[in-house]
Write a protein that binds this DNA or RNA. Structure first.
Lengths: 193, 193
DNA sequence: ACCTGAACACCGTTCAAGT
DNA sequence: ACCTGAACACCGTTCAAGT
């Protein structure tokens, strides 16, 4: 983790790891089948650190906001590893993970019909990890500083810490969108397609 | 491109490229400073292929939907490269790109106030590329097939092609969210924070 | 049983020497 | 001026040989 956090996942090398551990590079293969398995193991260890409090009786909107920001907090603790996991490990989120369990409970509380659950859950996961990885890899800051067509207005960019705001904005926007979807088609109509 | 499309970006090697081109590996360095610059160049060439028709007088919602699906079409033409670009090139979308120009025009038509433009634009880009890269790397399919807590229901997953639907769903959801944001705070209030 | 040195098949890139 | 062979400093992984 120290190697990954400071220099990025691609800087983690079986050989470097071995020297840090004062071991022979080949001894690692006694504990792990290969480098990919090692990275999956590390990612799962970090993922297992996820914690969130369950506000049973709060409105689902607030619970979802809390779940997402708790996830963001974890992601910022190991940005390099999480950015890597989001894009290289499609199975990073597992059904038993607290994150998924909480998400399922929240969507259930929101009244998402069973038939629509897989798609809505996938949508929420995709938006959260998508915005988060844009934030972690710098794209979010890049986009926030791109003005419409007048790039000579004021300074180069806004003061700073725009990224939390964009994350919150994205979260609020899909929450509002889900609200109105759940309001006007409770009988699970495939509205508008 | 042939090498990248078939075997992925990480399979593109200066040495392999050279043999495909019937050249000496070192001759490449006469045309390109290094491998990273080569990948940026290829990514920009593909990005420049983006085309979308401008429906000046259609509602902004429909224009945004079209922009996003046109972008998705391009992404699916070179999935490996685009997935790589999304996560490794924060400046993949440039201010002069048709995509960005169109997005700016659409948000303007939607009545997004100038002060909120950077954040809304970043939000839209993040959601589109985020969901798209989840789709390209397989995470979207993974999530769609994860049922709430009854993993023993019916078959293993839905028939197929769920992913377009999730993309459309995400798009519709943020559009609806933006609609209500633009409706109730036209004077650019920082609502709800 | 456990460990490990040497080796294999690769990388990106430099640089001096060729034409 | 342009090209390129050899070399450098790395990789992940195998495998036979050591203890």
């Amino acid at each position: 983790m120290r190697l990954i956090d400071t220099d990025g996942v691609e800087a983690l090398t079986m050989r470097k790891l071995a020297t840090v551990l004062d071991a022979n590079p080949m001894s690692l293969y006694h504990h792990v089948p290969n480098k990919d398995a090692l990275l999956r193991g590390v990612a799962r260890m970090v993922g297992a650190q996820f914690r969130t409090v369950t506000l049973e009786d709060a409105p689902w909107q607030e619970r979802l906001r809390l779940l997402a920001t708790d996830f963001r907090t974890l992601a910022h603790r190991h940005p390099k590893l999480m950015a890597y996991s989001f894009t290289h490990q499609a199975d990073f989120i597992q059904p038993e993970d607290p994150f998924w369990v909480s998400l399922a409970a929240i969507l259930d509380a929101a009244g998402v019909p069973h038939s629509e659950f897989p798609q809505i859950a996938a949508l929420v996961c995709a938006v959260i990890t998508g915005v988060l990885s844009a934030e972690l890899n710098g794209a979010l800051r890049q986009w926030s500083s791109l003005n419409p067509s007048t790039p000579d207005e004021g300074g180069l960019a806004r003061p700073g810490h725009d990224e939390v705001e964009v994350f919150r904005l994205a979260l609020d926007t899909i929450i509002t969108g889900l609200e109105s979807r759940l309001a006007d088609g409770d009988g699970s109509l495939d509205a508008g397609l």
